[in-house]
Amino acid sequence: MKKILIALLALFLLYVIAISTIPSYIENERNPVKSSGPYRVSDEAQAFYDSLDFIADLHCDALLWGRDLTERGDRGHVDFPRMREANVAFEMFTIVSKSPSGQNMQQNSAETFDNITPLTIVKGESPFNWFSLINRTLSQSSDLNDFISKDGRTIFIQSKADLQKLITLRAEDKNTIGAMLGIEGAHALEGDLLNIDRVFEAGVRMIGPTHFFDNELGGSAHGESGDGLTEFGKAAVRRMNDLGIFVDLAHSSPAIADDVLAISTQPVIVSHTGVRAVLDSQRNLSDEQIKKIAEKGGIIGVAFFDMAVGEPELPNIIASIKHIRDLVGIEYVALGSDYDGSVAVPFDITGLPLIVEGLLKEGFTKTEIRAVMGENVKEFFLKNLR
């Protein structure tokens, strides 16, 4: 019995050590920043950046890694203090609940070993989360709510009234910031429509039908089938429309995108993407898709990482924004970084002035730059949030 107790104690100590060291190591490996701050731009670009009323980003996976987002981190890309340092008003925090081993842009199986399971365990999460996608999802939702409560100056954006409150408070104090909640991949619903209501009650206002593999809703852009929406997927989209949850077409197969655009009664979001005209990848939007999304009144967030825009990233981010503007209009384009999304990025959130400088050099007007940096996101949600 004594040997068993010693062995159990040793295992417990090893688990405590793992909790305190492994998640940070994994995040450092998975979310590098290619160029560390502080980031320098021209006086003109910095002054204009500082004058922006509303800077917004449509995609960040920071909730996955177990960091306290109320504290300024020395790893990763986003937290509340860095949002304030960067004058960012609004961030869409997205929940990742499953990621296939060997994840790639071409083809992934839902049956592949899940990378998030061991991360969930070594983060010290409840055993109820270890093998349940919906529990992981609700847990990350709860984490964001806890961070917001602890911070005291962050608004949890769940309604138009919440967004209007954020806008009003920021007019007096730019340290007031807003956070919205999304889900990356509706496999998190575990095939149960009732879970859409559960995540809505938890604050979720955006869901992507698929992530890197096919699921109960249909095919992923990186899956095996290329299928459109299943009957369950169509029912899920209708329920999302009923509740006021936006459909995010990032990572969806072209067939799903067509199906969603055909049946959705609400505009769609593409939270983080590139365009095929800049980088020809199955990850990215074709001109035809961009036109259909714009016709539906949607909004497109341009991602920051090389597999979406190519290298070097910054000029290709600018080129992607320019292509969407020239194709359908400036009002349909936004920032969709994919910060903390297991990607290497050229700069963290404090480097956003570099985008303003790049847009100025490319001849964008200040009105256009304001639109891209956040006004489009603000107007989209003021129009479509309930």
Rank of each mutant, 00 (worst) to 15 (best):
I245R: 01
T210M: 06
I290Y: 06
F200H: 14
L285R: 07
V275M: 01
G223W: 03
L194R: 15
T210S: 07
L193P: 13
L194C: 05
H211C: 01
D259Q: 13
G219D: 05
G208A: 13
S286F: 06
F213M: 11
T273E: 04
V268L: 06
H211Q: 11
A250V: 03
A236T: 11
I245W: 02
L279Q: 07
T273K: 02
S286Y: 09
L194G: 15
A221M: 08
S252F: 00
G218P: 08
D227H: 10
P254E: 02
L229T: 13
V247P: 09
I293K: 04
G274P: 08
D259W: 11
K234R: 15
G226F: 11
P209A: 08
R283S: 05
P254D: 03
F212C: 07
L261R: 12
R283P: 11
E201Q: 14
R205P: 04
P254I: 02
K234N: 10
I207R: 03
H211R: 10
S225W: 11
R239S: 01
V199Y: 12
L261Y: 14
R239M: 00
V275Q: 05
V204N: 02
A236E: 10
F213D: 07
I207D: 05
P254S: 02
G274W: 01
T210A: 06
L217T: 15
K234W: 07
S281G: 05
A257W: 01
R239A: 00
V278C: 04
T210R: 03
S281V: 03
S225L: 08
G274S: 06
S220A: 11
D242I: 00
D280R: 09
V237H: 04
G274D: 05
L229C: 11
N241R: 03
I263E: 12
E224C: 00
V260D: 09
A250I: 01
K291F: 00
S225K: 14
M206K: 03
H211G: 06
E201I: 07
G228L: 07
R276K: 15
V204Y: 02
I245M: 01
D287Y: 09
H272C: 04
A236F: 14
V237T: 14
P209G: 06
D227M: 09
E216Y: 13
D214W: 01
L194Q: 15
V275L: 06
Q289K: 15
D242H: 10
T265L: 08
L279I: 05
F212N: 13
T230R: 10
F213E: 14
E231M: 05
D287T: 06
G208K: 09
D214S: 08
T210Q: 07
I293Y: 07
H251A: 00
I290A: 13
S281M: 04
E224I: 11
R205G: 05
I256W: 02
I263S: 09
G223S: 13
H251P: 01
G219F: 04
G226D: 12
E288V: 07
R239C: 00
D227V: 00
F212T: 09
L194D: 15
G191K: 08
L229I: 09
I290T: 15
A250S: 12
I245T: 02
S281L: 01
D192F: 03
V237A: 11
T265D: 15
H272F: 08
S271H: 11
L279G: 09
H211M: 04
